[in-house]
Design a protein around this nucleic acid. Structure first.
Length: 133
DNA sequence: AAAGTGGATCGTCATGTAGG
DNA sequence: CCTACATGACGATCCACTTT
């Protein structure tokens, strides 16, 4: 792992608040038959998409000439790409987690339905047997 | 108390895909 | 094509819990 990674790592505190947000959202997700696909899950556009400190907008491309300027531009682009992908990964992880929760929810619902149907079937069988006697 | 372990979260890289 | 975005895979780190 790079130094940049280590320095930019965050404590679990942030994830705690995210978990809270997600569980709050879950309670509104009680629709039975429609499990959205991963791609259909809602985007949460966080306000953190602003450029981080230290990432400076480039001058217009036409003003870059020297090798040094080109190198700086390349570095800047690399940093920008990393930052954007970091955001994308966060969002992707969040969506995946939500998707799994949806699936788990669905499993619970189906298990309940199954249980109910089994009981219903048993009751009907009993009824039928008694009538047959 | 220290070491070990498992789960959760995050960041990075590689790759696929859609839109311009 | 090129670019931006989404996502799977993977490794690093943290944290809570258990074992020694």
């Amino acid at each position: 792992m790079t130094m940049e990674t280590i320095e930019s790592r965050q404590d679990g505190n942030i994830t705690d608040s995210v978990a809270e947000r997600e569980s709050a959202h879950m309670h509104t997700q009680t629709g039975q038959n429609s499990i959205p696909t991963l791609a259909q899950l809602p985007q949460v556009t966080s306000p953190t998409t602003a450029l981080p400190q230290g990432v400076v907008m480039a001058a217009s491309p036409g003003s870059l000439h020297s090798p040094q300027q080109l190198a700086e531009e390349a570095t800047r682009k690399g940093e920008l790409r990393l930052m954007e992908n970091r955001e994308a990964a966060r969002e992707c992880h969040r969506k995946k987690k939500e998707y799994v929760k949806c699936l788990e929810n669905r499993v619970a619902v189906l298990e309940n339905q199954n249980k109910t149907l089994i009981e219903e079937l048993k009751a009907l069988k009993d009824l039928y047997c008694h009538k047959a006697e």
